[in-house]
Design a protein around this nucleic acid. Structure first.
Lengths: 150, 150
DNA sequence: TACATAGTTCAGTATATTGTGAACTAAAAA
DNA sequence: TTTTTAGTTCACAATATACTGAACTATGTA
């Protein structure tokens, strides 16, 4: 018996839009749809079967996508006593850790640009100034993040 | 005759690091190396042959990578009178346009999350609050960008 | 023990990516 | 006109990706 969960038309629309945005960040379609579902559905913890049936994916496709998402720390699961299923959810409460990883990448990029600037010939003035401005803008963004978390 | 350009050891190291960062943003290796070279080299405008020889790429690989970068607006080229070559460069002076496109994507994501929040059941209080906090953080970043550009 | 549940793993298919070398082409130079 | 320059295009190879269905497995239930 299908365990497809009920969704309003609005929710279906939001899931589709969310999935497209996720695909644009280089996530594969099945993973994108699972993340979208877990972000939009009112039931925030869904079983393997609920995910599979609601999204119309194959069993193995669901398994592989879930394992990729688990490996990438995009989802987690919990179990319930007296129930052998796993319930998958988006650990949205950890969004600050996710942000921290993003900003660590940005910091690396900022520092590399600073090293590049430090050794560039002063003959390419316009290039250097634009690179410096851009790096300073990134630093300003970084500051917004680090100020909020100090 | 090879038109390989001269690079210091430090520059070679910076190019390699830059290329790795670019590959992590889902750019293919050849494209990543070309962008890295054009960001680090003191000569900011390089010909097809200088790029190919300096990076040790095949002719067709160079052609395809350059055309991808041109199509993605990551590089541009200029010509010089009395010289049939094209000279490729990173239009770093346009970094604000690039930032604008990034933030347009972030804005779309923020608005979608606001729509999701607006229709979520109030029963998932913790989820909703975390999603709201995250969306507000993204809005704060967005504000840094839009304040600088108003 | 037998059966159901909750998945995992594997082989295969289809398609996309990332490159290579060789042949081709258009414009300019000799 | 012939040759050189500055690339482009194509056929091919190697590898990666994104799934499917079918068989398998581990744990719990009857």
């Amino acid at each position: 018996m299908s365990e497809k969960i009920k969704l309003t038309k609005e929710q279906v629309g939001l899931i589709e839009q969310y999935a497209v945005i996720m695909e644009q960040t280089n996530l594969q379609p099945a993973m994108a749809k699972i993340l979208a579902l877990l972000n939009v559905a009112d039931v925030t913890e869904l079983s393997f079967n609920q995910i599979q049936d609601t999204l119309g994916l194959s069993k193995s496709g669901t398994s592989q996508a879930i394992n990729h998402l688990l490996a990438a720390n995009r989802i987690e699961y919990k179990t319930k006593l007296g129930d052998q299923k796993r319930y998958f959810y988006v650990p949205i409460q950890n969004w600050k850790d996710t942000a921290a990883r993003h900003f660590a990448g940005i910091e690396t990029y900022i520092k590399l640009n600073q090293k590049i600037l430090a050794q560039r010939s002063h003959k390419t003035k316009e290039f250097n100034e634009a690179l410096k401005e851009m790096t300073e803008f990134l630093s300003a963004l970084y500051k917004v993040y680090s100020d909020r978390n100090k």
